[in-house]
Design a protein around this nucleic acid. Sequence first.
DNA 1: ACAAAGCCTGACGTACATGTTAGCGTTAAA
DNA 2: TTTAACGCTAACATGTACGTCAGGCTTTGT
Lengths: 122, 122
Amino acid sequence: MQAKEAAERLGITQRMLRHYENEGLLDVGRTLNGYRSYTEVDLRRAGRVRDFIATGFSTREIRAMSACLSDEGAGPCEGGLEKLKEKLEHIDRLRAELDEKRSAVMDRLATLQNGLATVSSR
Amino acid sequence: MQAKEAAERLGITQRMLRHYENEGLLDVGRTLNGYRSYTEVDLRRAGRVRDFIATGFSTREIRAMSACLSDEGAGPCEGGLEKLKEKLEHIDRLRAELDEKRSAVMDRLATLQNGLATVSSR
DNA sequence: ACAAAGCCTGACGTACATGTTAGCGTTAAA
DNA sequence: TTTAACGCTAACATGTACGTCAGGCTTTGT
């Protein structure tokens, strides 16, 4: 498929796709006229790159664990899981605190509505 | 506590702490001599900033949901949970694929060792 | 045949996180 | 009292992810 569709399906810009390719994270074929031609495999790989980057990894880091990008894992994925787990720690800490905070807010909200209900039912 | 200790306890540089402060994410008090003085509350907040940034958020985004940073959540945390959930989606997709890949590798490894054991026990 | 829409490369611009260095006060130990 | 360790600001430098724009093909509908 062509660049436009690929970008749309991934929810990113063509520029970003080209960037990933320039950084050696993607190797996209061309048609006779020189246009890039994305396969479904390319798409999945690009999707992973997008996710890694959105999660705070640099292209350099991603390149270092390129085995994590292929559909069929050839290598042991060079510490990819470990690094991901570090990110997870960060995110988990945040999520735990936010969840806590959210329920506190919900509680206060419930209490408030309760109070109003009590009042209005008098 | 002073800058050095604060940075060490957070596992980041003093430069980064100052950066967070310059970006309006932290408001650290000073002692008479002008030295920054970090409280435990400051530390927790800075830790959250560190985690948000390590997870791919920009100072700008973090500022926009600054309610997510205070110990006692005053506000509804302005979409903080939603954004975090997006990040989680990215990370979850990656983790699922990596876990899958890892077990595939482990399987092959087990098969291999099994084969060797069989051979050596002949 | 021509316009509209896509693709391509290359280059410049920007935002942001950090590192680094310089110049200078403070504090505490030898 | 000198020296080492630490703090501060300000400014410059770097790396990375993109946005954007120019100049120029290709393809397709009219």
